[in-house]
Write a protein that binds this DNA or RNA. Structure first.
Lengths: 213, 213
DNA sequence: TTAAAAATCAGTATAAATACTGATTTTTTA
DNA sequence: TAAAAAATCAGTATTTATACTGATTTTTAA
């Protein structure tokens, strides 16, 4: 018989951890070796447990999911990470995958998707929930239609975006950054073009959705 | 021996429902008589179960939590409702309490707060998590400084807010709702006064923070 | 080091939002 | 049913954002 898959959990919801214990307890090929409710606990506790797979929530007190994933990837490259979260927007998926997560599934997931996902990433393969694959494909299609809207903001653009989100007018931003109002207007237009929106309301909304502010 | 407290659960996360079964299974004075993963299921299933206490998530597919709570309150006034959710902002708490919910606790809750909350609302008393009581007190203090900013939006205001968030201009909203642009401008000003902001960017940001859009 | 990308600035014009005052009608609720 | 809240509309003025065209300088990366 193969050794059991050793699983660690990081989630700030005790209820979810309980649920995971319950579900994974029914899987003979798995065992939970540790559960943590924030990033700090996880990082200090994971060293001696040597889990094979880490179930990682994105929204936790303290660090964000991708920060934690980045650290784990560097410090413990052998651990396979599986994001388990409520956040179903494409930006987060990209961000987590970039940070070294192998799988991404939602907490609304049902049936035996979870064990299947765990076994898949344990083998070192990628696992994305079908719903999410759909979303990413749709997103990619939309991007093709707007060749200008590539989601790569320059440092200055991000800075201006923060100021807009902080409710400064173009003039105020210009004063703050010691440049002309025209310059800020340019940045505004570029931001709106890149995020494919037509006004501040949409800009703020999208920026929040994408986790940029 | 007293009869057991009959509990129904409405939550779209199977993991959470599993966790609840696990935790409440350890309470001798409680039994779970039904669990549902959206509002429609809940409303069609709750009739014959006659639960004493309903654990209600706010974020579910279809209707919002306060809409569901409103329906339940009218149709089954004997059922005590306990909101169990991730949303810890003051607006939601107020909104749910106004819709007849007796208790409000967070999914991050630990220990035996949950059973305690269930027993409290079962007795017909209010239960708010200490953390949330703090928040509401702090919020009340802040409100005192801005007597105009009472966070109770009218139906029409919410509608206009949705439209603003959907990136319509005042003129477009006016056309859509078959009223004058002036009217929409009034609503805009009222919305900004109530949310204590000075422009759309801030309005959208705050509305998202408060979960209004 | 050269090409590309980013950041800078200007003129001009229009559209939209914001501010203020003031009011009537409709709906809700006590 | 009476009082309160919500929804409606108008005039006028100012500020801000958006759109378009066009350009130079600085920084970054191949």
């Amino acid at each position: 018989m193969n050794p059991k898959i050793k699983i660690a959990i990081a989630d700030d919801h005790p209820l979810v951890i309980d649920g995971l214990h319950h579900i994974l307890g029914k899987c003979a090929d798995m065992e939970i070796v540790g559960s943590y409710h924030d990033g700090a606990q996880l990082l200090s506790g994971i060293a001696k447990k040597e889990p094979d797979v880490l179930l990682l929530d994105i929204q936790m007190p303290g660090q964000t999911g991708d920060e934690i994933a980045d650290i784990i990837r560097v410090a413990y490259p052998k651990i396979r990470m599986l994001a388990l979260t409520n956040l179903d927007n494409v930006y987060y998926i990209h961000s987590m995958l970039r940070s070294g997560v192998l799988g991404y599934i939602l907490k609304t997931t049902t049936g035996n998707i979870l064990p299947e996902a765990i076994r898949t990433v344990y083998r070192g393969e990628e696992y994305l929930e079908p719903v999410l694959k759909e979303k990413m494909a749709a997103d990619a299609r939309q991007m093709k239609n707007n060749p200008h809207s590539q989601l790569v903001l320059s440092r200055r653009e991000k800075e201006v975006l923060q100021c807009i989100a902080a409710n400064l007018t173009s003039q105020q931003i210009a004063d703050k950054l010691f440049v002309s109002k025209r310059t800020i207007d340019s940045h505004r237009l570029n931001l709106m073009m890149k995020l494919d929106v037509k006004n501040v309301a949409a800009l703020i909304k999208k920026a929040i959705q994408l986790g940029l502010v």
